[in-house]
Amino acid sequence: MRFTKVFAAATLALSGVSASPVTVTFDLIGILGFDLTEGNKYNSPIPPWLHGSKPGWYYGNNPFAYKDLPCLVGIICKILKFFPYALQCPTPPHNPPPPPNDGYTQTFSNITGATQADDFQTFGLVDTVEQCKAMCNSVQGCNFVNSYHDVNGKGGSTQLTCSLFTKCHDASTADNRGGQSQPDGSIDFIINSDGWCKNGVPISDPQ
């Protein structure tokens, strides 16, 4: 019943064609409780290499494990379709097996640093690299994904961190090694960091 009412509210929010973007954004936040717009980096305004950052969303097979994040499955996907300017749920990847060429070329593999760059778009949590790529395919302007394990970070999550960027990067920009103090006194560090660039997009000059 609750989801039925929320879905009806989403329909009413956009029933008037004269609604202003500000009003529509307010309605989206009121319905979902999250700001999933581009201006807010899709609910992750602080990039993952800065203190205080938090994942903006979760896309994967265990939504009940992340009740404090907007989980991009089920009814929320239907609601977001009424707000085309907001983050949209990706089309589920073909898994398994992935196609021989999924549209991405790997630029670095299994290193101990994560990309940090000014063209950062958003970041969240996923179960697989394929799901990270699917997120990139659903965000306008995304051309590069960096998936990695942030050990001790992100509230102790064992999921992959998935960061999206508009430009492609090689290992020279993967200089986020972690090193942030966590509430339990531990220090986070980065492992299993992979970079994936959409085919045909050149690597950005780090200079």
Rank of each mutant, 00 (worst) to 15 (best):
D184G: 04
E130H: 04
L72N: 00
S147Q: 09
N101T: 07
G178N: 04
S15W: 12
N43L: 04
Q131L: 10
A8P: 03
L87W: 01
W49I: 11
D119K: 13
T122A: 12
Q180H: 13
N199G: 09
D175W: 10
P90V: 04
A171I: 09
Y104W: 15
T161R: 02
N143P: 05
P90C: 01
L164A: 02
T115M: 03
P48I: 11
P48N: 15
R177D: 05
A174Q: 01
G113E: 14
K133G: 05
R2A: 08
C77V: 08
G179Y: 04
C142L: 09
A65Y: 03
Q116N: 12
L36A: 13
P93H: 07
N110S: 11
P48H: 09
W196I: 12
D118R: 12
Y148G: 07
L87P: 06
D27R: 15
P70T: 00
A65C: 00
N95T: 13
D150N: 10
G56W: 07
G39S: 14
N110L: 09
N199S: 14
D102Q: 13
T107Y: 02
G153N: 03
N192Y: 10
K133V: 13
S138W: 03
P70M: 12
T37D: 07
D119H: 10
P98F: 01
P92E: 00
G39K: 15
P97T: 10
A86D: 01
D68L: 11
L125Q: 00
N43H: 14
G195W: 03
